[in-house]
């Protein structure tokens, strides 16, 4: 479902992604952990082309983009349609209601009829526990509620994979659980997810596989029990010690 080969990205003379290879099957939930500044966000942004990689090949579902050469905007868009994105800072559209946020892209991008989209959007808002708040603007919602709207907004496009960048880290601890809850359910239902997080609780809950990222490379990967319980690399151990403290 996701295939990444030899992905490289530099900012100036700083190499942030140093040849990443990653494969992920349909229905798999992968969690990416690693120290701050090691390139996790950049990796997700390359996957849906918010950053242009310098080298490598990215395939999501049936769309492949090879780095180098002219930027093909339409192909980028096709890729993005298959990769839903949930941002750390939500980035909800502040001038639209929760329902409007969810309906906007299906109506305007996919051109689907409003009534059908509205029914689907209300269903999604119910799934994330927000049917009461469909008519509220983002400014009237708490952080946890906003992030759940953002997840519903991404799901409304029925993407092949869902990319989540630290979905709980902008939230107060007592609001994290409501978002974890939604993500647990998605993982259980067999969604294909790639989640970056510093929230080890979330990682344990939703991951089929955990990747440890360091200095632009994947150092180690494995099921959560193994990676958290018995990590192979010294760097991984160090990192896990530091987040436990």
């Amino acid at each position: 479902m996701i295939a990444v080969e030899g992905l490289r990205k530099r900012f100036g003379d700083r190499t942030v992604l140093d040849g990443i290879d990653h494969r992920q099957e349909r229905g798999q939930s992968v969690v990416l952990i690693g120290p701050s500044g090691c390139g996790k966000t950049t990796f997700l942004r390359c996957l849906n082309q918010l950053e242009t990689p310098d080298a490598g090949r990215i395939t999501i579902a049936d769309v492949t983009i090879e780095a180098g050469g002219r930027v093909d905007r339409e192909r980028q868009r096709q890729l993005r349609l298959r990769a839903g994105m949930v941002f750390q800072q939500f980035h909800l559209f502040p001038h639209l209601t929760a329902l409007g946020n969810v309906m906007e892209a299906p109506v305007r991008v996919l051109g689907r009829p409003r009534d059908a989209v509205e029914a689907q959007a209300l269903g999604l808002l119910e799934q994330v526990g927000l049917s009461q708040h469909a008519g509220h603007r983002p400014g009237q919602l708490s952080g946890g509620q906003q992030q759940r709207v953002a997840i519903a907004r991404a799901l409304a496009m029925e993407p092949a994979v869902l990319l989540l960048d630290e979905p709980t880290s902008a939230l107060d601890p007592e609001l994290r659980e409501e978002v974890r809850d939604v993500l647990r359910r998605l993982a259980d239902e067999g969604s294909t997810m790639l989640t970056v997080t510093h929230d080890m609780q979330l990682a344990r809950d939703i991951a089929d596989t955990v990747l440890f990222f360091h200095a632009g490379t994947i150092v180690e990967s494995g099921p959560p029990e193994q990676l958290f319980g018995d990590p192979v690399h010294e760097r991984t151990r160090e990192f896990l010690r530091s987040v436990r403290d």
Binding site: N48, M85, F87, H91, A105, R108
Partner: peptide, 18 residues
């Protein structure tokens, strides 16, 4: 307008004009 607004729009498959 914060940069994230354009990125969120693009991530949803919108064209720039839209």
């Amino acid at each position: 307008v914060p940069k994230g607004q354009l990125e969120a729009s693009l991530a949803l498959g919108m064209k720039r004009r839209l």
